[in-house]
Simulated assay, not measured.
Amino acid sequence: MEEQTIRVQRSETKKEKPQSDQLIFGRSFTDHMFVMDYSDPLGWHNASIVPYQPLSIDPSSMIFHYGQSVFEGLKAFRTESGDIQLFRAEKNLERLNRSNDRLCIPQIDEEFTLKAIKQLISIEKDWVPSAEGTSLYIRPFIISTEAYIGVAPSMNYKLIVILSPVGAYYKEGINPVKIAVEDHYVRTVKGGTGEAKTGGNYASSLKAQEIVAKQGFAQVLWLDGVEKKYIEEVGSMNVFFKINGEVVTPQLNGSILSGVTRSSVIELLKHWGVPVSEKRISIQDLYQAYLDGELEEAFGSGTAAVISPIGQLTWEGKDMIVNNGETGELSKRIYDTITGIQYGHLDDPFQWIQGIEAKSPVKH
């Protein structure tokens, strides 16, 4: 089948770009977006780059009533030489298709979608900030658009990609956070949608987060939804623990999202010869490791922060202070290495980077 072309409609007006020191995550968006439609029997068609604009869809569109949607999050980085590069973008699109499968959404052509994202970023290259720690956040998402109130997979969809320049996640250095272990609410269960990146997972997490925020915690540590015994994720991130020299992370079990940063951390640790394993970890065993003086480091991993060190875990009124509440040596090394590869400061022995084009950095 011949690959479809991408129609480009340039915006006649340009937005004012925010200064790099005033970037707020997810608040500013570029001049253009990518849109593609799906219908039966045409399949995915009408691939277009158009001016960023509101969507006009029917009030009875199934997305509003049954939540059939998926999304991804990845970044483009500008190097010191002015190059723009992506970090493991193909892995995000592979995961998008796994989410599509779980939500009964038609598969996308990953290679074509990556080509479209690269073309969109090329058009918006002046939006890729150059200040240290900044990047261009990329949000592909798919929504069901069939005008029908009935519980069934939609016959129509839109794939949209929007871009947002974002500031440095850690403006004043990495600061470990306080986490509350959640033993009442659950994020998802095995057999549910936890392994897919769909909006409902995040909506269901808000109540617990709201409660612990009032108690001074940054986020919650999720336990499994059946026994409420085994550790799964921290906030919207995967979680790692360094216990007696070994790094452990919960094994993927059908309710845990397979993070791209998670897999990168595991590959990096294996490359360094650091013992790392994926296995079930109970909160009781973690607490015992803490009492035995063996819980050395803890951190979350994800696209936004890369690494988020955990300085304190509170479970059933008991505080576990990790590494004296300070960022661990290994956590910092992982963060420095992954970000170093992302920004081109370090060599990339894993072939994680894909270039877009070399242009002089734009100051804004």
Rank of each mutant, 00 (worst) to 15 (best):
Q219H: 12
L159N: 04
K158G: 02
E124R: 06
L120T: 03
K125W: 05
K115H: 11
K207C: 12
N175I: 14
A203R: 05
G225D: 02
G192F: 03
Y148F: 12
E233K: 09
E232K: 12
V234N: 09
I123A: 08
D183K: 13
L159A: 03
F217Y: 15
P176G: 00
K214S: 14
A203N: 05
T198D: 02
E210W: 11
N156I: 04
K118Q: 12
S164G: 05
L114S: 10
I143T: 05
Q219G: 08
G199M: 06
G133F: 02
A213M: 10
E182C: 04
G191M: 03
L114A: 10
I211N: 13
G225S: 06
G192H: 03
A218T: 13
Y230G: 05
K207A: 15
A180Y: 12
I231G: 08
G167N: 02
I231Y: 07
I160M: 11
Y230A: 11
G235D: 04
L136W: 03
A116H: 05
G216W: 05
S164H: 04
A208P: 07
E132Y: 10
A180W: 08
Y169T: 07
D126A: 10
Q215L: 14
K115F: 09
I160L: 11
K190F: 07
N156A: 14
A208W: 02
A152G: 11
V234K: 09
N175Y: 08
A131F: 11
Y169V: 06
S204K: 12
T193Y: 12
K118T: 08
A168S: 15
K115A: 10
I174L: 15
K171V: 07
V128F: 03
A168R: 13
A203C: 10
E210R: 14
T145Y: 00
N175R: 15
T188P: 11
V177I: 14
I211P: 07
W222T: 08
G167Y: 02
E182F: 00
E172W: 05
T188N: 15
E227V: 11
E227T: 14
T145E: 01
A116Q: 03
D183R: 13
E182M: 01
L206P: 07
T188K: 10
H184S: 14
V128G: 06
H184Y: 14
D126H: 10
I138Q: 01
P176A: 01
Q215C: 10
K171L: 06
E233R: 09
Y202V: 00
L159T: 01
T193S: 13
W127Y: 05
R139K: 11
G133T: 01
G191F: 00
K190G: 12
K171R: 14
A168Q: 13
K197Y: 00
P176H: 00
K214W: 05
N201C: 05
K190T: 14
F141Q: 02
D183P: 05
G191C: 02
F112A: 12
Q219R: 09
K125G: 02
N156Y: 10
Y137S: 04
E182N: 02
V151W: 01
G167S: 02
K190P: 13
K118G: 04
K207I: 15
L221H: 06
D183S: 15
N175C: 12
E232M: 09
E146Y: 01
G133K: 01
A131W: 10
K125L: 06
G200S: 06
E172L: 09
K158A: 00
V186Y: 12
Y185Q: 08
A180T: 03
I231M: 07
A180K: 15
D224C: 06
V212H: 08
L159R: 04
I138N: 04
G191T: 01
V177H: 00
